[in-house]
Design a binder for these strands. Structure first.
Lengths: 133, 133
DNA sequence: AACGTAATGTTATAATATAACATATTTTAA
DNA sequence: TTAAAATATGTTATATTATAACATTACGTT
């Protein structure tokens, strides 16, 4: 049988399932805890699954939180650039769709820097939390 | 004597000196290693100095590299928003002074998100490395 | 079937960061 | 000017995040 491009292995699917059903970004050891009933026993199994999922763009890492989040978009361009809005009150994370890259590319060119990719983490208060306060 | 706003303690100054003379961002344990001849003996002493320096805007953390860099600007607005250009070849880091915050603030408002601060890490190739390759 | 590649399982350890507690120093203010 | 409050220090231990190393298994390709 020829391999479907989006076929995931058991561990990869297990980790992705957890992330997709999570409301907030999860830390690796939280994922480990949640997946122990499904056969994942060691940190490395989580990290390996995460590495692959990030590589294919299904998952992103939020660097300032050492946390991981499933990508909600149809197809992210393979684990490169990311832009997030992070609510400081409820931890909700929204991923911005990426036309913002061209802006950074121009800004970079202005100082003779060849843009390759970026990571943007914007902190603030989400709409829900604003209304409730 | 009344306290000068920019007076630093011994450990804080030691850590800042190391960062200011470094060409690339440094990791906390690299700072520890470099400051051991100057009386700093434990990781916590480094982290505490870093915390303070970050708080007053003298140092920034580069989240995607778990590294720290001295701020070259006159006065950064107290450890809040940062924007970096990071060379993938030589690790040179340039901090963008530009008022990119207002752009993010607008983009955020478009989706009903109240901007508070941001962290931007742009990867690419710096001018020097471009010329040499 | 035999090979090459990728994924797995497992143990150990590296790298990054904080907790807890005792002490010392500086600032503030009565 | 001194006592209280706040800040910084020193030190040991430990928590958190992530990777190394190595043996094994699954699986697509030829």
């Amino acid at each position: 049988m020829s391999e479907a491009l989006d076929s995931l292995t058991k561990n990869q699917q297990t980790v992705l399932d957890i992330l997709e059903s999570a409301k907030e970004p999860l830390k690796a050891y939280a994922i480990l805890f949640d997946t122990q009933k499904k056969g994942i026993k060691a940190p490395l199994q989580v990290y390996r699954a995460l590495d692959k999922l990030i590589e294919i763009g299904k998952v992103h890492k939020i660097e300032s939180k050492n946390s991981y989040i499933a990508c909600k978009h149809k197809s992210c361009d393979a684990g490169t650039s990311t832009s997030f809005l992070i609510c400081e009150m409820c931890d909700l994370v929204t991923e911005l769709k990426k036309n913002i890259s061209s802006y950074f590319s121009k800004q970079s060119a202005d100082v003779n820097f060849s843009y390759s990719k970026h990571n943007l983490e914007i902190y603030g208060i989400c709409n829900n939390c604003k209304r409730e306060n």
